[in-house]
């Protein structure tokens, strides 16, 4: 509501400025203003135009979105200086309109106008720069949001499993062999007896350990399980975001990134220690 009122007030100020400036110009035209015209006509004309220009610039300044902290000082300062300049001109013209009075009056007005115009320009340029940066950041965040933590976790796990799969590095070509008997006769021992074996007590406990180390997880194409995992991930995300309510959007992104990296660190730590939780 406050923002709307500000918007209307700024618009009205700008409009008033235009009207005043146009009135000044219209008045000058109507009285055929020249250097030798009546001083009263000259004073009224330039006072109207001076106020009008000042109000136009104030209106523009009031329209600025997300102004900087020095904005208010610049606007008030510019307004006072320009109005003092116009007021002084109206009061001293034509008797007091001589040096050094002219210098003071002109300097005050020029400083006021420059302050207002400069502030409007600086704020507009800074806003454009910041808006561009914000849009870029937004695009990046949107892309990140397309892949939630669950997806990233799954992708990392897949990559690790791929790296553990040695078979992929070998050629998949299968060398077929024709069913062909030997061109020699096998001896009696080869056909009638079995190879003797040496047997040792060994429970081969390494199998379980290798199973864990290689990350041999069961792959299940279960959409229900996937959606349940997603819901759980979202719930965890919500809870953690409520707990760690960030101060602004930038902090929110940082918190998300830190959480993702924490997860990755956990995964790698888990693999490094050879532990599964």
């Amino acid at each position: 509501m406050k923002s709307k009122m500000n918007h209307y007030f700024a618009s009205m100020t700008l409009l008033s400025g235009f009207i005043l400036a146009l009135m000044g110009i219209g008045f000058a035209l109507s009285v055929n203003l020249t250097r030798r015209s009546d001083p009263g006509e000259i004073a009224i004309t330039y006072t109207f135009i001076g106020f009008g220009l000042s109000l136009i610039l104030i209106g523009i300044n009031l329209m600025i979105i997300k102004p900087k902290e020095y904005h208010r000082i610049a606007v008030v300062g510019g307004l006072i200086l320009s109005w003092v300049g116009v007021g002084a001109f109206y009061l001293i013209y034509p008797e007091g309109w001589k040096y050094p009075n002219v210098t003071f009056v002109a300097a005050a007005y020029a400083m006021g106008i420059c302050l207002l115009a400069g502030n409007a320009f600086a704020n507009t340029v800074l806003y454009q720069i910041e808006e561009r940066a914000r849009l870029l950041l937004q695009e990046k965040t949107d892309k990140e949001q397309d892949h939630n933590e669950e997806d990233i976790d799954k992708e990392v796990q897949k990559a690790l499993e791929r790296s553990f799969s040695r078979e992929e590095e070998f050629s998949n070509f299968n060398l077929g062999i024709k069913e062909k008997g030997y061109d020699f006769i096998l001896g009696k021992a080869l056909t009638d007896s079995e190879e003797q074996k040496i047997t040792f007590n060994d429970d081969i406990s390494e199998v379980g350990a290798l199973h864990y180390a290689r990350g041999d997880k069961l792959k299940v194409n279960d959409k229900g399980l996937d959606s349940a995992s997603m819901l759980l991930a979202q719930t965890i995300n919500k809870n953690s975001s409520v707990k760690n309510q960030p101060a602004n959007s930038l902090n929110k992104n940082n918190t998300k990134n830190i959480r993702i990296f924490d997860n990755l660190k956990k995964i790698f730590k888990r693999h490094k220690n050879g532990k599964r939780t």
Partner: peptide, 29 residues
Amino acid sequence: GSISFAQQRNAFLEMESNDLTKHMLDNSK
């Protein structure tokens, strides 16, 4: 609870064949 190994040398020796040699080799497995 055990592990068994079947092992053979990856080598062979060429010899001349006759009935006596074959008989001897068959008997000695």
